[in-house]
Design a protein around this nucleic acid. Structure first.
Length: 514
RNA sequence: GGCCCCAUCGUCUAGAGGCCUAGGACGCCGCCCUCUCAAGGCGGAGACAGGGAUUCGAAUUCCCUUGGGGCUACCA
């Protein structure tokens, strides 16, 4: 492939960047970078009813978070400005007029068949369609075919009708031959001729429509490869028709498989976390998300799974994109993210955790009212970095590190390790042992407790488990000696006392209840 | 409904006629390690949707069936 590859990502700003769109953007970006071509961002904001300017910003933010940089776009300009589709309407109209003048399009005076009026009864919840697969159930099933005879109207008839009705413009679709799309991932796809009717280019009130706009823009922006979701496959003949009518060379097309939810449906907003920002908020790392997304519908062959951005760029190409849809498997994303966290230095994790705490305490379920000292967070991160799938899990799994007040013991943990009356004795014994321990480093705590157990002739775990419940409130934690030493003696003793009090109270209640 | 696309373990996939008693990864299960949980090590269960055809030989080619998905608009 030559060095003049130009691809584009063309979202419509109707919401945050979702994972399907992000994957389409990624494939385009990887293709561009692999072939040393250019990646262009074009915002298709022509549906005024559904677009919101702030969402364009959300899309930029999402792409930047993933590290997908674009070479030309609405915010940074380029040789084919503007990159905002709404600002190209005049150009689209110009092409439509040319088509009309040359007799390749004609005026149509029929009642519009819209989503609202064509489907009797069945509602058509308009999808967040754009150049990416978004979600939305669409039960639209038109029963009508085009019964329009406007193509045959004489000039006089048209003049007469124009008095009352402002006409739409339809492309005169050639009859006879089938339509063929040479798709880079699907091969040759043939559509029967009667499947493509004379479609509308410009509405009665003068708005240019998607197929026209997309084709014109792709041509004007010298796009060489259109890489987009499979839901656009059926649109492709229409766009090719426009290229043909205008005598333009069409780009190559590559329709990549849809991403499905766990129910095997097109991923929609109702499927939980489908927006990129949600993954950002949950503490996923961009490289892991990129790695995961790349593997959705593409594989490098062989047994490679963990791939850096650089490797992805080297390895990626369209010929290894699969044809079947892929299900978004959050479990695997979690594993990948964990691998990325483990592979990165502890200081990275610490920095991410700190950023989360700084950004918004209340965002974490654990809350964070502990004074944030970098060296402290670093120690906590070191303990948890092999155990967490996401950054925010540090705050959850290690909630007791970030809580100053009393910690509520997990009832199950209490039931498992502190039921017997003996638990209180054990706790008092460890307390006594730790109260005079100096220094209070991991090694010291461990040695003290093991010696205590040896002296009493019992297993160290007899002390360890109740201690863990006291200090963490949980039955699960990193090594308890490390935890104790990080927390410090004061906090440890305080929590032991609290648990003893709690157990006594529970015991008293139980007795009173009898 | 019509048209189009697709079909390998639960999931992501490798596989481009003999290398396949189908490989890897996630997940799951068991064992080891061990203060619990992770991490790490070892092991295990788990798939070519079905049926025809072509061929000496098919997961790989063709056809049908079934299943899934997408599209269907004066939305993108």
């Amino acid at each position: 492939m030559s060095g003049d590859v130009r691809v584009r990502f063309a979202p419509s700003p109707t919401g945050h960047l979702h994972v399907g769109g992000a994957r389409t953007a990624l494939f385009n970006w990887l293709f561009a970078r692999h072939h040393r071509g250019l990646f262009i961002l074009r915002v298709e904001d022509t549906d005024a009813a559904r677009n919101r300017p702030e969402y364009a910003q959300a899309i930029y933010d999402g792409l930047r978070w993933l590290g997908l940089d674009w070479d030309e776009g609405p915010d940074k300009g380029g040789p084919y400005e503007p990159y905002l589709q709404s600002r190209r309407a005049e150009r689209h109209l110009q092409v439509a007029r040319e088509l009309l003048q040359r007799g390749l399009a004609y005026e149509c005076f029929c009642q519009p068949r819209t989503a609202d009026n064509v489907a009797d009864g069945s509602s058509l919840a308009s999808d967040d369609g754009d150049e990416e697969n978004v979600g939305g159930a669409n039960s639209f099933a038109p029963k009508t075919t085009l019964a329009c005879t406007c193509a045959k109207l004489s000039a006089e008839e048209r003049d007469a009708k124009r008095e009352e009705i402002s006409p739409a413009l339809r492309l005169r679709v050639p009859k006879g031959a089938d339509f063929v799309v040479e798709d880079l991932v699907r091969g040759t796809v043939t559509f029967p001729n009667d499947m493509v009717e004379d479609f509308v280019l410009v509405t009665g009130d003068g708005r240019t429509l998607y197929n026209l706009a997309a084709a014109v823009d792709d041509h004007d922006m010298a796009i060489t490869h259109v890489i987009r979701g499979e839901e656009h496959l059926a649109n492709t003949p229409k766009q090719q028709l426009i290229y043909e009518a205008m005598g333009w060379k069409a780009p190559r097309f590559a329709h990549i498989p849809i991403i499905l939810n766990a129910q095997r449906r097109k991923l929609s907003k109702r499927d939980g976390a489908t927006s990129l920002v949600e993954y950002q908020a949950m503490g996923y790392v961009p490289d892991a998300v990129v790695n995961f997304l790349a593997l959705l519908g593409w594989s490098p062959g062989g047994n490679r799974e963990l791939l850096s951005r650089k490797e992805l760029v080297e390895l990626f190409d369209l010929d290894r994109v699969v044809k079947h849809p892929a299900i978004f498997d959050t479990a695997k994303l979690g594993w990948l993210n964990k691998e990325y966290i483990k592979a990165a230095p502890v200081s990275d994790l610490a920095a991410r955790v700190t950023a989360f705490i700084d950004a918004d305490h209340r965002r974490t379920s654990a809350g964070a009212d502990w004074k944030i000292i970098p060296s402290y967070v670093e120690k906590v991160a070191a303990l948890l970095h092999d155990r967490v799938k996401t950054t925010t899990e540090v705050l959850e799994l290690g909630s007791y590190f970030f809580t100053r007040g009393p910690i509520a013991p997990d009832p199950e943990a209490v039931a498992k390790y502190c039921t017997e009356p003996v638990a209180i004795d054990r706790l008092r014994e460890v307390r006594e042992c730790l109260a005079r321990l100096e220094p209070f480093e991991t090694h010291d705590v461990e040695q003290a407790i093991r010696q205590l157990a040896a002296a009493k002739g019992i297993k160290p775990s007899e002390y360890i488990h109740p201690l863990r419940v006291a200090v963490t409130g949980k039955s699960v934690s990193p090594g308890i000696f490390e935890v104790c030493s990080i927390l410090g003696r004061d906090v440890v003793l305080q929590r032991i006392d609290a648990l003893v009090a709690f157990l006594r109270a529970a015991d008293a209640t139980a007795k009173a209840g009898r």
